[in-house]
Each structure stands twice: as structure tokens, then as C-alpha cells.
Design a protein around this nucleic acid. Structure first.
Lengths: 126, 126
DNA sequence: CAGATATTCAACCGCATGGTTGAATTATTC
DNA sequence: GAATAATTCAACCATGCGGTTGAATATCTG
């Protein structure tokens, strides 16, 4: 179907909406990192970093493996793929390319006939 | 550089982190909508919808054109493309494929250290 | 002009967020 | 066993968010 599991997208996009967390992800792109390593570039407390990491973990964006007293984090690609896929749905808007489905929708729109979904024909045109 | 203009990504991803706003965007994908039309599917006040719309506008995700007393909103693809592009940096993690940028980074990496893959254990004792 | 329509503004509420600090937990090391 | 290291927990604080309601601002219409 067109729509993904939206509550997950909520937490994924929310996690991505913070520069610190995006930076952590980009750090994790080059390999496994411990909590302290992830926290190091920022001038925030370790507790604050821990919360960020938990947000990422909660969104499924990273996975944590505890070895001894150290927590190692690794990137988990699935949710990133989901977000990417959701955005791909709008790709036609910046590429200008239409696929079959979009062409259909667009045809209806230019014909100005009542759409299948919402027939708000009460509005005047200009 | 790998990173886009991060403050913009903050607001873009934040705007996308709400199901109501994502729904509005998907509505706008089939064409121009007024504020009331955008608000209609949800059981929230018009003022609340207005705030959502302002968040989308603020992130540059939509553009507003006022004709008479009615505000028409249209999708603005640029920021969506930015978000999509940012996520694309991580595409290799779920496709297993390397893009050009990654190949470059990786080439540098393999030149520096013998470890070919992403395990860069730097001087870690034990 | 009066009234209806479309939308925003302003004040408020409850709750989540991102930050802090200090104590607690768990694991390693001497 | 005691000290140190890695991380979380708990309490707290300021700020922002998503929601509400009621008034305000334009604009269209009769």
C-alpha cells in the first residue's frame, strides 16, 4: 500500500529531526561506536547523549550490544530505508518524472473533475 | 561535504515527524488545497491545522498563495529532495551497494588502514 | 452596511523534549 | 575488596509542541 506504518515514521522522523542525533548516525556510518564515543564530539553530558541514543534506539535506527560494561551501537538500516521510501513517493515533484499512478492523479487534477477521494467542489475558482 | 545545511534539516525532519502533517503533504500531492480542505480530514480545530500548516510552510515544504480570503497551499519539492538526499547517504546500508561518494570515502579508508570493512578499532586496549 | 466565510492571533493547558546534576548500577582492574 | 570506568537513573528545569477556545482580521455576498 501507499502508506507505511505511520506511528513508526513518527518516531523515525522525530529522531532524525535533531542535528545531534543525525551526527551520531553519520558517525555510526563508519562503524560501531560506544556511547562515550558517540557523545564525545558534543559538549553535552553523558546522560544527555544517553537520551539521544535511546531516542535513536527507540526509532529502531540503531541497535545496541552490551559487551562487559561497554555499550556498542550499530546502525540499523531498516527504518532509514522506510523514511527514504516514504520520501521517494514524492520524488516526481523534484524530478519532474511521472510514473503511471501519478499520471492518473494528475490527469484528474487538470481535468478539474471531482476527485475520487475528496469532492470539494464548493470552492470557486478565483 | 557530506552534510547538508543542518538547521534546515532540523525543521524539515521535525515537520515530517507528525502524522497529521505527513497526511497533509500526501493530500497536497494530488494538487492545491486550501487551509480548510487540509484541515477537514482531521478532528482538530482550524487553529490547530493552521499551526501544522505553518510548520510545513516554515520548513519550506509548502508554499502558500492568498487569493482573496482563501489561502491555497501547494507542495514545494526542494526540502523533500534535501531530506531524501540526506537519507540517500545511507542507502548502501540497506542495499549493500556503494554510491560514488561512499566509494571515495572507502578508497581513502583502505589507503590509510588495512582493515577493509567498517571495523576501525583504533588502539583500543583489549 | 450587515452578515457570513476563511483564516489567523492570543492566551492558555498538559505534556514531551533536551538539558543539567548527583547518585546508582555494573564491570573491570589492581 | 576497593577503586575506577562506562553507562543509566532520577529529579529537576526551561522551552516548545499540539491542542483548545474566543476574539480579531480580511474578504466576499446579499
Amino acid at each position: 500500500m501507499v502508506e507505511l506504518f505511520t506511528p513508526q515514521l513518527d518516531t523515525i522522523f522525530h529522531a532524525l529531526g535533531d542535528a545531534t542525533r543525525r551526527h551520531m548516525l553519520s558517525d555510526l556510518a563508519s562503524g560501531e561506536r560506544t556511547v562515550s564515543q558517540l557523545a564525545e564530539p558534543f559538549s553535552i553530558s553523558l546522560a544527555a547523549a544517553s537520551k539521544h541514543i535511546k531516542a535513536l534506539e527507540n526509532a529502531g535506527l540503531i541497535r545496541r550490544e552490551v559487551r562487559g560494561r561497554t555499550h556498542f551501537c550499530r546502525l540499523e538500516p531498516g527504518p532509514l530505508a522506510s523514511a527514504h521510501e516514504w520520501l521517494s513517493h514524492y520524488q516526481r515533484f523534484w524530478t519532474g518524472r511521472l510514473d503511471a499512478l501519478e499520471e492518473l492523479l494528475r490527469r484528474e487534477d487538470t481535468l478539474k473533475s471531482p476527485s475520487p477521494n475528496r469532492d470539494d467542489t464548493k470552492g470557486d475558482d478565483r
